[in-house]
Design a protein around this nucleic acid. Structure first.
Length: 260
DNA sequence: CGAACGACCTGTTCGC
DNA sequence: TGCGAACAGGTCGTTC
C-alpha cells in the first residue's frame, strides 16, 4: 500500500517525534526480520525518505531502512499498548515505534552511513523538465505506466498513483515510454507533482487499512479519479472507468480521456 | 530489454 | 449461509 505520499507522511510525522530521541532497545518479534540489530543508547540524527523507503539515521554511522511493501505501517505508541500485528518495536526514551504488518512483507535493513549518497535515486517530487524525462525514457519500450512504477528509474510511484497521474495527464497507460513526446512528458510531470502533492496533503490514501503514525486514516481516497472506480463515471467526461490488467497489475483508466 | 509468472504472507471480498 | 477462489497498495527471481 504505502507509496510515496504515505511514506512521506510518515517521514514528516516521524521527524519531530524522533528529534533528540534516544534508542533504548529494539525488539524483533518476527523471525523474518531477525537480521536487524542496532546498538542501544544512540540518538537519532535524521529521518528521511528514499523512494518508498523510510530511513532513520543514527548518530553512530548506521541507518535503518524501513520498506513497508504492501500492508506495513508505523505506529507511535506512548501508552504502553501493543497493536495487533506488531512485528518489531524500536523502544525510545520518549515512546515506542511499532512496525505493524499483517502480511509480513515489510523489510528492515541496515546500511552504514547515509543511504542517500549511495543510491542516487531520482525522486518524482524533484524539479524536472519534460526534457529530462525524454532523456530518461529514451529507448525504454515498456508501457509508460510500468516506466513510472520502475523503482530503479524513479522511486516512489506505485499502482494507485500511476493510474491517477496518467488519467490527470490524459495519457494511455499503454503508450511506450519512448513514444512519449516532450509535450506529453511536460503534462505528465505536472500531473505527477499535482497528484502526489495533493495525496501528501491528504496524508495518503486509505482503501482498507492504511493509517498514519498516529493511527489516523488518510483522505485521498475521496479524490481518486479512476483507481478502484471500475464502472463508475470518469470525473472528467462521465464515461465508465475501465479496469484491465497491464503486466499483471490492475489498471484503471478512461478510454475517452486517455488517448490510446 | 521486457513480459509473464510464481513466491513471499494474510485478510477481505466476490461469486456460485 | 457457506465455501473456495480471487484479489490486494510491492518487489524479487526465473524463464522465455
Amino acid at each position: 500500500m504505502p507509496e510515496l505520499p504515505e511514506v512521506e507522511t510518515l517521514c514528516r510525522q516521524l521527524t519531530p517525534v524522533l528529534d533528540r530521541a534516544v534508542l533504548q532497545k529494539i525488539i524483533v518479534k518476527d523471525a523474518r526480520l531477525r537480521s536487524v540489530s542496532l546498538t542501544a543508547g544512540q540518538g537519532v540524527k535524521s529521518v528521511y525518505r528514499v523512494g518508498k523507503s523510510l530511513a532513520v539515521q543514527f548518530e553512530k554511522t548506521k541507518t535503518l531502512l524501513i520498506h513497508l511493501r504492501m500492508t506495513g505501517r508505523l505506529s507511535w505508541i506512548t501508552d504502553g499498548t501493543c497493536p495487533f500485528y506488531s512485528r518489531c518495536v524500536l523502544v525510545f526514551d520518549s515512546g515506542r515505534l511499532h512496525l505493524v504488518d499483517p502480511r509480513r512483507f515489510a523489510t528492515l535493513s541496515i546500511v552504514v552511513g547515509d543511504s542517500k549518497e549511495k543510491r542516487k535515486l531520482l525522486d518524482p517530487m524533484d524539479e524536472r523538465e519534460g526534457r529530462d524525462f525524454m532523456i530518461l525514457s529514451a529507448g525504454r519500450r515498456l508501457p509508460v505506466k510500468n516506466f513510472l512504477m520502475d523503482q530503479k528509474t524513479l522511486g516512489g510511484i506505485g499502482n494507485i498513483y500511476a493510474c491517477e497521474m496518467l488519467h490527470r495527464a490524459g495519457i494511455s497507460p499503454w503508450r511506450r515510454a519512448c513514444d512519449m513526446d516532450e509535450q506529453r512528458w511536460r503534462r505528465l510531470s505536472k500531473a505527477m507533482k499535482a497528484t502526489l502533492g495533493k495525496a501528501i496533503e491528504c496524508r495518503g490514501t486509505t482503501i482498507s487499512d492504511w493509517a498514519d503514525l498516529f493511527g489516523r486514516k488518510g483522505s485521498y481516497q475521496k479524490q481518486l479519479r479512476v483507481y478502484g472506480r471500475k464502472g463508475k463515471p470518469c470525473p472528467r467526461c462521465g464515461a465508465p472507468v475501465i479496469r484491465t490488467l497491464l503486466s499483471g497489475r490492475a489498471t484503471f483508466f478512461c478510454t475517452s480521456c486517455q488517448e490510446t
